[in-house]
Design a protein around this nucleic acid. Structure first.
Length: 604
RNA sequence: GCUCUCGUAGCUCAGUGGAUUAGAGCGCUUGCUUGCGGAGCAAUAGGUCGCAGGUUCGAGUCCUGCCGGGAGCACCA
């Protein structure tokens, strides 16, 4: 917000160093750590170290030398319009703004830009974010929720930072797991499915667990049991084969059951306010992917060992001339000619770049698939697909339960819908005691916003690479560093503004030329950082940055709210200035929450 | 065996080279409602930043090795 002044000072520093033959290092500006005043600062440690390396300065210690340079620079700069004063301390050059002017600029900027405050300049690049890739024929669990939330928030950040953004989903609608559900449904449960979309999804999960138990080899099986199990297994394999050859009955069974899952998925995405632009399905890239393998074989990138009873493979390390195991050897086509997960990802990448003209492609997939993506991207590279370097696997830690890894096969999963329902229940019980003045019909809606806010925030306030042990009590906590804490700051700001309506002072003209409290200063400071936090989070692909920032912002507001009177203020100018500050804070918090895919209620 | 990842306060986590005391939340202890919503505010206690070397004027942060947890490594997705 003070780019002009900063540039001016930077130019003066450079000029000074050039004139005095000082080996100036790159100037990195940062906010001055809390001092009750604002400004920007830069250090001269690196510059002093450069000087020392050049043998100049008669062995003065680096910190001392940095301080000397800072002092000289300070004298050289003199006074600058809009800047209150400049100081040289501990090797740093601190440039302080005129407080009232700074506060005014920040608050004005937020209020004039409104919902667009913090938005980055439009970029030419198009970015595709792929997330929400659950398998069909199962129900959506809390691990899928982490994936979807991370992907969605990343998409929102990238979009807000100024990139054209395409949201892509890639459900796994193929494979043995899918066939298993179809088989057991067809054999034992046909037309017994429950009516509700979610009930049906959960029921499919249940029959899947039952089927895997039936098909699993047990200890001390009787010969009859073994024969039974093997017969079942043969039926399942036969169904898979029929699917592959396009058998009409099996295909129809597949279409119907697949649609059940997709219906549930769409409903959950709707709850999470996720709008997917492009749907890819594994079943659709199956055929094109085989064509790519054919080409890889022809060009000797892949080795076809099918004649010897083996699969089609790519010896990646060998092709790259690596001696140690790194990318290893990847199987790209089964012996029977059917495709694999990896096969399909080759065709998918091609589609993304060629059909949708994206410049970058981000895959939000858990860390266990790291090797898979490294292999896929390397094979694309060997194939000559230049955009391979624009593919990025955003890996994240998985979600486990206190009792261990989730397993659909064992039926040990925590479903998103269960947690969602529980969240609403808990909020409603809090509201029953704290929000008696809110009409009952409105409470349900707010409960959804708060409950989801808690859940979503709990998934975002841990860095991607960390695993999460899902504890429902922690995820649905409403106290401390949580979604509701941030939402509550928004509600409180709204409450003040609502009460100010009718008072003639409502957002009238004002100036910040009174003595600001440290809480006001801190709040304004936090707001001013919004744009750079958006940019950082988007460039580093880290929703966590925004999640932490939103908390800091809310925290600054809560402190302000508690310590600084607004409506009770006597002085009209001060009251108006503070009202504008509250309005700006409300806007900034709302913008931050929106980027985090969390609703900002007016009351709670 | 190889590759990747994590190891910071009792617990859950921030902090990827520079400003005397390494930060939050939970939990513990203690204050705050004749104030705009207490889902809050303020304060206290709590840390050999896994270990050992190295690079640097300066390392929780970068490099190497080791120890410990997790994951992946040919026809699952």
């Amino acid at each position: 917000m003070f780019q002009k002044e900063q540039q001016l000072i930077e130019d003066k520093v450079k000029e000074f160093c050039k004139a005095n033959d000082i080996a100036l290092a790159e100037l990195k500006w940062q906010p001055i750590p809390f001092s009750g005043e604002w400004g920007f600062a830069t250090s001269f440690f690196q510059t002093a170290a450069n000087e020392a390396k050049l043998g100049k300065g008669n062995k003065v210690p680096v910190p001392q030398k940095a301080q000397e340079i800072a002092e000289q620079v300070k004298v050289q700069i003199g006074s600058v319009a809009g800047i209150s004063h400049i100081e040289a301390v501990k090797g740093y050059l601190n440039v302080y703004f005129k407080t009232s002017e700074y506060a005014q600029r920040v608050v004005d900027e937020v209020l004039t830009n409104g919902a667009n405050f913090g938005k980055g300049a439009a970029k030419t690049e198009t970015v595709m974010v792929e997330y929400a890739q659950p398998n069909t024929h199962h129900s959506f669990h809390i691990g899928h929720a982490r994936n979807t939330i991370l992907g969605e928030v990343l998409a929102r950040l990238v979009e807000f930072a100024g990139y054209k953004t395409i949201r892509a989903s890639y459900p796994g609608d193929l494979g043995l797991g899918v066939i298993t559900v179809m088989w057991t449904y067809d054999k034992f449960y046909k037309r017994q499915e429950p009516a509700g979309v979610h009930e049906r999804g959960q029921w499919m999960l249940k029959i899947y667990a039952e089927a895997t138990a039936l098909l699993e080899k047990k200890e001390n099986e009787t010969p009859e049991q073994t024969a039974q199990r093997e017969a079942y297994e043969a039926e399942r394999r036969e169904m898979y084969r029929k699917w592959d050859t396009g058998d009409e009955y099996v295909r129809e069974l597949w279409r119907v059951t697949r649609e059940w899952s997709l219906e549930e998925l769409r409903d959950i995405l709707h709850m999470l306010d996720v709008n997917i632009d492009v749907w890819f399905y594994e079943s659709e890239v199956d055929e094109p992917s085989k064509a790519i393998i054919k080409e890889l074989i022809e060009r000797k990138i892949a080795d076809d060992e099918r004649a010897q009873g083996g699969p089609v493979i790519v010896k990646i390390d060998e092709k790259l001339g690596l001696t140690k195991d790194k990318y290893r050897t990847a199987v790209v086509l089964r012996n029977d000619g059917t495709s694999l997960y990896l096969t399909k990802d080759l065709a998918l990448a091609k589609d993304k770049f060629e059909k949708y003209h994206v410049d970058r492609s981000i895959y939000v997939v858990d860390f266990r698939q790291s090797l898979h993506f490294q292999q896929a991207f390397k094979i694309l590279e060997l194939w000559g697909f230049k955009q391979a370097e624009k593919c990025y696997h955003l890996s994240y830690g998985y979600v486990t339960l206190p009792e261990g890894v989730m397993s659909a096969r064992k039926g040990r999963v925590t479903l998103f819908k269960e947690v969602y329902d529980e969240a609403i229940k808990r909020v409603l019980s809090v509201e029953a005691e704290k929000s008696v003045d809110i009409p009952a019909e409105e409470r349900e809606k707010i409960a959804t916003q708060i409950g989801l806010g808690a859940l979503v925030y709990s998934m975002l306030c841990v860095d991607n690479n960390k695993d999460i042990v899902f504890d429902i009590n922690e995820a649905l906590s409403f106290d401390g560093k949580t979604g509701p804490y941030i939402q509550n700051a928004h509600v409180r700001a709204n409450s003040i503004l609502k009460k100010s309506k009718g008072q003639k002072s409502d957002l009238g003209p004002s100036t910040f030329d009174y003595e600001l409290t440290k809480q006001e200063i801190e709040l304004i400071e936090q707001m001013s950082q919004f744009p750079q936090k958006v940019e950082q989070a988007a460039e580093e692909y880290r929703p966590l940055i925004m999640a932490m920032y939103a908390y800091d912002l809310a925290n600054a507001f809560h402190s302000f709210y508690h310590a600084v009177p607004v409506l009770q203020t006597e002085d009209e100018n001060v009251k108006n200035a503070r009202l504008r500050l509250v309005a700006a804070a409300k806007q900034a918090i709302a913008n931050a929450l929106r980027l985090l895919d969390i609703q900002a209620p007016e009351v709670m």
